[in-house]
Design a protein around this nucleic acid. Structure first.
Lengths: 212, 212
DNA sequence: TAGATTGTTAATCGATTAACAATC
DNA sequence: TAGATTGTTAATCGATTAACAATC
């Protein structure tokens, strides 16, 4: 086996930032970049950049830095963004609709191919080019369309119920945008992504700034 | 000074999860909860729960646990969610509209009172009850309406430009939903919140699961 | 009372940072 | 070549976890 390095979660979370920067640099016609310059752009430490990038197996060249096209490829492979992953959204409300229209997924290989909702007014409609189906069709759809990721954007109180349905349909992973912690079998990958958690960081610092 | 404890970032990010759970318990008529039970619900360790909660200054009672109403209040005070904070959104696209309609902010005291965009078709419209103004009116609006937080949901390539305008208007903090790292003066609080960073964690584990 | 729970102090674990030889 | 940069190994820093006395 070549892949032996276990990246830390912070490293995994930084890799998309590198990827985004590198694609930008590449589009500007730059083909080598040093850890020093990456660090400056992203406000990291150069040594941290080198440590992070090393997990992908990239080999840099002293004095030159890292070859950008190759590094992009290595990062994409490492976090599995070089492949298309089909997903569905459950909950076609504000947040669900936003994710359907969000172009930030371009870099990632994630395709949201349908939405599901329980509201009869929404079922049958098309949001941002994707059909909205009844939640009752969820199980069938997942099994027939090779859906790897279920994205939960329903109100918190329905999150566990939707989760159960996804598990029944043999989903592989769940991206949970609600503040509920979900009960799942061990083999299901769950990533919680409640944006409000980041807000606490910001507002705490606002308060602290104000006091001092 | 009573507040001497510096919470770690992970602790700050967990506090909203406790808050959410506690509010739920309270609405069910429960008034005391132990760290053991909180840990079980959130899949944490009890000792971690106690460590986290201690930053708020809460005093628990052996055998009983923590008084829920008081703990809710302490957490809210600690992360500054007991006060209303006015904010504006810049970028009334998919993500911006979603945040305008998102009811997850109820717990937090954050009020989004207006949106701004550069698209003449959007300017003058109303999205989820909030007016969309021209970006040219941003500076005036911020200064006149005690805006503490600027939420950036424009496409990445415009993020720095919007950031500069916010800084000019003497904004106190920026919640940045783009993958760009912003250049700001030191006194501005910036919180980056690109949802795609969490996706990397999920997709990496998907890949790893598949290989093994 | 006995036993569950808190909260403090110490130990462990893991991530970041530093030092520096190797290299182009 | 000289000097900038990589990548490895070690040191530091900080967060999590463990141990346990105090308490209800």
């Amino acid at each position: 086996m070549t892949e032996d390095i276990n990246p830390s979660v912070p490293t995994l979370r930084r890799l998309p930032l590198y990827l985004h920067l590198l694609k930008e640099m590449e589009s500007q016609g730059v083909f080598y970049i040093s850890s020093t310059l990456i660090a400056k752009q992203l406000k990291f430490e150069a040594i941290q950049v080198r440590k992070d990038l090393s997990v992908t197996g990239i080999i840099g060249r002293p004095k030159m830095g890292y070859p950008i096209p190759e590094l992009i490829k290595k990062i994409q492979e490492f976090i599995n963004w070089d492949k298309t992953m089909n997903s569905v959204i459950i909950g076609a409300g504000a947040l669900g609709s936003a994710l359907l229209g969000y172009n930030g997924f371009e870099d990632s290989g994630l395709k949201i191919i349908a939405a599901f909702d329980s509201d009869p007014n929404k079922i049958g409609s098309i949001i941002r080019g994707r059909h909205v189906y009844s939640i009752n069709d969820l199980n069938d759809f997942i099994q027939k369309n090779n859906i790897l990721v279920g994205i939960i954007t329903v109100p918190a109180e329905f999150a566990q119920n939707i989760c159960n349905r996804l598990v029944e349909a043999n989903i592989r992973s769940i991206w949970n945008f609600t503040p509920r912690v979900l009960e799942t079998p061990e083999n299901i990958i769950v990533k919680n992504q409640d944006p409000i958690r980041g807000l606490a960081e910001l507002t705490y610092r606002l308060k602290k700034n104000n006091i001092e």
